[in-house]
Each structure stands twice: as structure tokens, then as C-alpha cells.
């Protein structure tokens, strides 16, 4: 059990590292959000699973289980709201982008 939880925490921190490198390197807001949200959310879920395997099913492990769906809904909906807000704010897509279907739609 100790070994499994240690391996899960290592995988989680590796994903977090990849997400943060993407946050530094990619060119514009939308691509940064792509990299960072996915990698960091999955990495933190993996760390919480490691905590569950370490403690077993007692009061600490149950709290780790409750945290996983909350983190999933919270992170994805926050990313969606940020993308829409940034588009309505008027930030253009980057230089490399090839297609924009959202440009001439009546936004609500």
C-alpha cells in the first residue's frame, strides 16, 4: 500500500511539472489554459488518490474521495468561464491559429 501511494504521488507531481512548463512556454492565453488545466487537474486527482491508498477507508480517506469530484467540476467550469470571458474581453487568437468559427455569432 505504501509503495502504491508513493508511486501515485510521484506520477501526480510529474503531471504538475508538465502543466507548469506549458504555462510558461505556450504563446497565447487559450493554449496556456489548455495545457495547464488538464495536466494540473489530473495531477492533483492522482495525489488525492495516493492519500486515499495511504490512509485506507477511515475519516481521512473519505475526505480525499469527496475532494475528487468537487475538484473535477470546479476546475473544468472555471476553465470554461475564463475562456469565454477572455474572448468577450477582446483578446485575439494567436498568430498560428487557422480557424475561427465563433467570430460572427451573436453572443449572449
Amino acid at each position: 500500500m505504501e509503495i502504491i501511494s508513493f508511486i501515485l504521488i510521484c506520477i501526480g507531481i510529474l503531471f504538475n511539472l508538465l502543466g507548469c512548463i506549458g504555462l510558461i512556454r505556450l504563446p497565447d492565453v487559450y493554449n496556456r489554459l489548455q495545457s495547464a488545466t488538464k495536466c494540473v487537474t489530473l495531477g492533483t486527482c492522482s495525489i488525492l488518490l495516493g492519500v486515499l491508498f495511504h490512509f485506507g477507508f477511515n475519516e481521512a480517506g473519505i475526505k480525499a474521495i469527496i475532494a475528487i469530484p468537487l475538484l473535477f467540476f470546479g476546475a473544468t467550469v472555471a476553465a470554461h468561464a475564463l475562456v469565454k470571458g477572455a474572448y468577450l474581453f477582446g483578446i485575439k487568437l494567436g498568430d498560428k491559429s487557422v480557424k475561427d468559427d465563433y467570430k460572427d455569432v451573436e453572443k449572449s
Binding site: L70, F73, V77, H80, A81, K84, S108
Partner: peptide
């Protein structure tokens, strides 16, 4: 208000919070 995704997630989570 905000978009339909935010509305549905709000309905789901507000009681739990």
C-alpha cells in the same frame, strides 16, 4: 446571468457547499 454550463453546475453544487 452566465452560460448554461455554469447554471447547471451551480444547481448541482450550491446545496453541497
Amino acid at each position: 446571468g452566465m452560460s448554461i454550463i455554469v447554471k447547471k453546475v451551480t444547481q448541482l453544487l450550491s446545496g453541497i457547499i
